[in-house]
Amino acid sequence: MALLEVRDLKTHFRTDDGIVKAVDGVSFSIEKGQTLGIVGESGSGKSVTCLTIMGLNPKRNTISSGEAIFKGENLLAMSSSRLRDIRGNDIAMIFQDPMTSLNPVHRIGAQLVEAIQLHRDVTKRQARARALELLNAVGIPRAERRIDDYPHQFSGGMRQRVMIAMALVNDPDLLIADEPTTALDVTTQAQILTLMTDLQKDFGSAIIIITHDLGVIAEVADDVVVMYAAKVAEHAPVDNLFKRPHHPYTWGLLGSLPRLDADVERLVQIRGQPPSLLNPPRGCRFHPRCPYVMGICKTVEPELLPAGDEADHVQACHLDVATKDREAAKVLAGTMAEAS
């Protein structure tokens, strides 16, 4: 049985302008100790998906449906007190901006101790010892001195390490990392990613990592979900996705990666803007931006189906497999049909 199985997850927000379907029928699953990457543009629903799983969306004006079965229990249907037991204990979360994710008026140590004592019946002294152990594990230099510092006395990278320590302090089965490296500079990004993969080996946690950076995915993920406009566009093991991408949106993402091996004057961009989720396009949601658009794309929404012979590689696109393989090969060679 999968550690977490998400089935047909929908999250809709009521706004003054109408209903925003931020997540619209997303399914995926993750096994123990595995790493799942969720990739997509801003506003594609990656973060909302995870916040819904954690029950962290504002209650007012949010309608969620579907299932998120975690160790046999549906997270979306359980009582808020049961969910609180799971949050921070079985499932922990790291957020995008370490500068604002720690409470500025409490000491680092106190914030870690709080996380421990919410779930473990231990004394403050024991909790503090555990907090110190974690701060050392995430590589905070002179942790025994810095444990009594305030967040503003740490750099962004160090704060993200503190966030990781705080997330892992109760040894969770699942760690959700929402763009954990986006707000950091490039060298720090690499350190944080390495830290996360190293700690994953020690702690055995499964990780869901949300990012818009395919480079991060390539580095850490086992499985990849590509999201576009609140839906899953493609879902594949990481090697498959990079060797044989099937969805034109994935091609766009791959094509827009900066490359050193090909002689490209400027980066390829996906033309247009992501659609409004208040009123998404009919048919395939990517069709207004797709260079390969056909008549059927404008009326019939493609289903998420296996592409060719690989059962674990699903995608939602009307193109035939032969065309896909041909175009994918071009993308990988760096000569994608100029989309702009």
Partner: peptide, 13 residues
Amino acid sequence: EDYVRTARSKGAP
């Protein structure tokens, strides 16, 4: 604020 979400994600009542 983000840190309030963090507190909730820790399981704080």
